[in-house]
């Protein structure tokens, strides 16, 4: 058995935030639990039945009392709500300079792809002190990315992207769990997150022999799937040019406008007819079944790398 912890490690900027909220919740809970338990003990013994025929005096109801014990708890719960919501709001807003990483979940493993082309399975190496933003996709059922030491969790739902971010504050090795039941070996869908000193991380990055950066893999796929036949850089093709597309606002044929983000590009590859760019015909075939979730992520990374530096998502911040 060995280790017998009673409190989880704090290894991200969120961990102290969540723990402080926990201390508050715990204080309130202990106070009311003690209050109720002691009241029951005291009243039950103080007013225990002394003879079978006794009939207690019936007091009149206390409206003031009812109001007091409705309003005070309500006030306390509103503090809980506001506090919990503010922590959550931080958790759902990744900073612009966060380091992007891609995660593909499948029964029963976590596949992680670094921008530089490194790939890992059930292991995630990240540098200390750097905000990290994961874009996650599932190839089959719903999974959930959970690192208790970071106090973060996010479901990975097939058919859409979900994102999660965190900033590690302590070097070490931390559990990565799948928290959403995903089938027979659900409890085997676990791994380790390694938080490394930045220098060690650089060494680790250059240690492997990746086939090329993620964008380069995307470019190869782009050519292999013959996307470049229609999507020509100079805009002369049958389909819109993808140069500098990422992060820009796109005018659609139906009059709507949309920002070209990861979910939009994914949809355009898998369901091209869903949103047609103004001035173009719906000639693109679907690539559903022809390209995996990994492939889609590589294509997105390639499209991000095209043209001038993007504004959102922070894909270009990597070179700093």
């Amino acid at each position: 058995m060995g280790k017998f912890p009673l409190f989880p490690e704090q290894a991200s900027t969120f961990a102290p935030d969540v723990d402080h909220l926990t201390y508050f919740l715990l204080a309130v809970a202990v106070f009311f639990t003690v209050l109720i338990f002691c009241s029951i003990f005291y009243l039950a013994i103080r007013y225990r039945r002394r003879s079978d025929g006794e009939l207690p005096h019936v007091p009149h109801g206390g409206l003031a009392l009812e109001i007091v014990w409705s309003v005070i708890p309500f006030g306390i719960t509103m503090v809980m709500f506001t506090w919990g919501a503010s922590v959550f709001f931080n958790e759902s807003r990744p900073p612009n300079n966060a380091m992007p990483l891609y995660v593909v979940a499948k029964q029963w493993m976590w596949k992680i792809e670094h921008m530089e082309g490194q790939r890992e399975i059930n292991e995630l190496h990240i540098p200390l002190g750097r905000a990290v933003r994961l874009t996650m996709a599932s190839e089959d059922v719903i999974h959930s990315f959970y690192v208790p030491a970071f106090r973060v969790k996010q479901d990975v739902v097939p058919g859409k992207y979900s994102t999660i971010w965190f900033q590690p504050t302590k070097p070490g090795k931390y559990h990565l769990f799948c928290a959403e039941f995903c089938g027979t070996r659900h409890s085997g869908m676990i791994g380790w997150v390694y938080v490394m000193q930045p220098r060690d991380y650089q060494n680790w990055l250059s240690g492997g022999a990746p086939a090329g950066t993620l964008a380069e893999s995307g470019e190869k796929l782009f050519t292999d799937l013959a996307c470049s036949n229609c999507h020509k850089a100079d805009g002369t093709g049958r389909c819109p040019s993808l140069e500098g597309l990422f992060g820009k606002t796109v005018q659609l044929a139906n009059g709507a406008k949309i920002v070209a983000d990861e979910p939009y590009i994914r949809e355009s590859i898998l369901h091209p007819a869903a949103k047609i760019v103004a001035g173009y015909l719906p000639v693109m075939p679907t690539f559903q079944g022809l390209v995996t979730e990994d492939g889609v992520l590589q294509l997105i990374e390639y499209i991000k790398s095209l043209g001038p530096k993007p504004i959102v998502g922070g894909g270009g911040a990597l070179g700093k």
Binding site: T22, L25, F32, T33, I36, F37, W83, V87, Y146, R151
Partner: peptide, 24 residues
Amino acid sequence: GLFTIGGLTGLFVAALGFDVHVTD
């Protein structure tokens, strides 16, 4: 007694930032 504890921990999990960590 037990409902008090169960109910109070319900307040815990209704707090968004806390629930993200403990849900599931």
